[in-house]
């Protein structure tokens, strides 16, 4: 299972995040992968907006963790600057937020073994020149299988609107 999209502007990337947000529930984990500048934080801004977060969502690269309150609590984490597994454990990912929080982890693919097995992986790629982003969404674990068809439909509708749905 895999959904592929193409967006042409940061705002379109946020719109994809907004659609994802409507499918998120308590304790969900989303891993965001992609090189620096690929749009990971931009997508999280869209998820935050979709979850009703009113605060400005900024990159957690230097703060490591930012927490926001919305329809669900959001813990936005970036492990890019960390070197050791211990550093990640020190963040206490299991302990962030309340029972109704979602965990969004930038560069989370590098620390997969420390994250719940049930998760959504969002991979962003850029050509490094234009504002075009390719977004691939892959589910891991059981809980996303049940939501997959509806997610596909919702994103396809957005994709058509963005004229960039590629799969």
């Amino acid at each position: 299972m895999r959904i592929e999209l193409r967006t042409e502007t940061p705002e379109q990337t946020r719109e994809v995040g907004g659609v994802l947000a409507t499918f998120l529930g308590p304790r969900d984990t989303v891993i965001l992968t992609g090189d620096l500048g690929a749009g990971k934080t931009t997508l999280v801004q869209g998820i935050g907006r979709g979850l009703g977060v009113e605060e400005h969502v900024a990159s957690p690269t230097f703060t490591l963790v930012r927490e926001y309150a919305g329809r669900l609590d959001v813990a936005h984490v970036d492990v890019y600057r960390l070197e050791r597994i211990q550093d990640v454990m020190d963040l206490g990912l299991d302990e962030l937020g309340g029972p109704d929080r979602v965990l969004l982890v930038e560069w989370g693919d590098a620390i997969e073994e420390l994250l719940p097995g049930d998760r959504l992986v969002v991979e962003l790629t850029t050509d490094g020149v234009s504002e075009t982003r390719r977004i691939a969404i892959v589910p891991q674990g059981r809980s996303w299988a049940a939501r997959w068809e509806r997610l596909e439909q919702a994103l396809a509708a957005t994709g058509d609107a963005l004229e960039g749905f590629a799969g």
Partner: peptide
């Protein structure tokens, strides 16, 4: 007191690749 094995380094192949790009 940490009991879990935690001294391992993060396998950062993607980040190193990204830094070179």
């Amino acid at each position: 007191m940490y009991l879990r094995r935690s001294d391992a380094e993060i396998a950062w192949d993607r980040r190193e690749r990204g830094a070179g790009a």
